[in-house]
Amino acid sequence: MTTLANLHPGESGVIHAVHADESLFQRLSALGFRQGKKIEFIRRANFNGPLHVRIGSTDIVLRESEARRIQITH
């Protein structure tokens, strides 16, 4: 078990849990961050910038602080 923030570009995993307050949780689930979904880490922007991930057919970018809230199983 690890978090999305610990993955490396090119790696993928399955979402195990999303730890966030209600509003963030809703936004994330509307974007496809739901338990059991496969998630792929595509790339990361320079200077500790956001992460570019893919769930199904949706590409999403999010900051590391949010990525740390998403638990992943390999």
Binding site: L24, R27, L28, L31, P50, H52, T58, D59, I60, V61, L62, R63, S65, E66
Partner: peptide
């Protein structure tokens, strides 16, 4: 502020 930054990248 500490608003989360989450954004969709359309094709």
């Amino acid at each position: 502020s500490n608003e989360p930054f989450i954004l969709e990248l359309p094709p």
